[in-house]
Simulated scan of single mutants.
Amino acid sequence: MVTGVGGSTGLSLSRQLRDLGHWVLGVDMRPVHGSAADAVAVVSPVDTPGYLWELRGLVAAHGIDVVIPTLSGELVAAAAARKDFAPGAEMLIAEPAPVSIATDKYLTMKCLANVGVAVPDFGLPGDFSSMNEAMARMGGWLVVKPRVSRGGRGVQVLERHTDGGRNAERIWRTLDDSWLVQRFATGTEYAPMVYRSGEEDRGHVVVVLEKAEQKYGRWGRAGSLRRLEPSSASDVASTAAAAAAALGLSGIVDMDIRRMPDGTPVVLEVNARFGPNSAYAPELLHLTMKPYAVSQVAGGP
């Protein structure tokens, strides 16, 4: 089962899994085209009290062995229910505590900073008397984002150049401490993906993608991605691996990393799930699914 199969992450995973010979049930809160998976089902939104029980019912009805959650809004609940989620089915997600920390972007920054993993200067709106103070302390442009959000929704860059800062001031006045404030890292942005087994003797695998042609010049959704050779971004890869280890995450971890003006890579946020770019690193899905023999799951229930 792949959740959120109507979105880019879920649809990509469904296609990859089917290419590997797995039978896939895709679920989404909205109707999706039948070609998205071998079978599709409509379920309630992730914040509905009975959401996980709906998934359990589908697991039983279709004989599902593996559940892959892809939606940010379901991760904390899915992690809390990962032990004995349903008879014969495994929920592919990390332990509850690391997932909860990664879901809260402020806690993520605090945890990483405490153990020496590089992050941009950060704080809560309440830590500053004004936007001007925040800009002065952080050295210029700011990024503000909800501490808990779905994907990149709500992320905004505050600057004073285009209109004297009037729009930035308007946005700042709406913020409370449910938001994170970060220094804007002006360098190249990367989308590293980490597979971490959680066992020291098995190590980890990191694939680094470079973002290019971003929507708003230096920020926004990337227009194109390029997979880098390990030697050309070894510092980004080591930072990503250190972040996943510091948070105690296992399985697949999707991240955003940027370079500061001096070239230092800093972690912007961490997602305890597959991201939308997993097709660029098919070996990570192979590692994730290796314990599950195709002969056991191919051909449908």
Rank of each mutant, 00 (worst) to 15 (best):
G6N: 10
G10N: 08
L11D: 11
S12E: 15
R15Y: 00
L17W: 14
L17Q: 06
R18C: 01
D19F: 07
D19R: 15
G21P: 14
V27P: 10
M29E: 15
P31N: 09
H33V: 09
S35C: 10
A39E: 14
A39C: 01
A41D: 07
V43K: 00
V43R: 05
S44R: 07
D47T: 04
P49G: 01
Y51W: 12
L52P: 00
G73E: 14
E74R: 13
L75I: 04
L75N: 05
A80V: 08
A80I: 07
R82P: 03
P87D: 05
A89E: 12
E95T: 00
A97S: 10
A97N: 02
S100P: 02
K105A: 09
T108W: 04
K110A: 14
L112V: 02
D121T: 08
F122A: 09
F122V: 03
G123K: 11
S129G: 15
R137V: 14
G139F: 12
G151I: 07
G152I: 00
R153M: 02
V155F: 02
H161M: 11
G164I: 05
R170Q: 12
R170I: 06
R173S: 09
D176K: 03
Q182N: 06
G187A: 03
G187D: 11
G187K: 09
G187M: 04
R196N: 13
S197N: 07
G198W: 07
E199S: 12
E199W: 05
V206W: 00
V208A: 04
V208T: 09
V208W: 02
K211Q: 15
A212D: 10
A212I: 04
R218Q: 14
G220N: 06
A222S: 15
A222R: 08
A222F: 07
G223W: 14
G223F: 14
G223Y: 13
R227Y: 09
S232M: 08
D235R: 15
D235P: 00
S238R: 14
S238G: 03
T239E: 04
T239C: 12
A244F: 01
A245I: 11
A246P: 10
A246G: 13
L249I: 06
L249G: 05
M255F: 07
M255P: 10
D256E: 15
R259D: 11
D262F: 04
L268Y: 01
L268K: 06
V270P: 13
N271D: 13
R273L: 07
N277R: 09
A281Q: 03
A281V: 01
P282C: 00
L287Q: 00
T288G: 01
A293P: 04
Q296I: 02
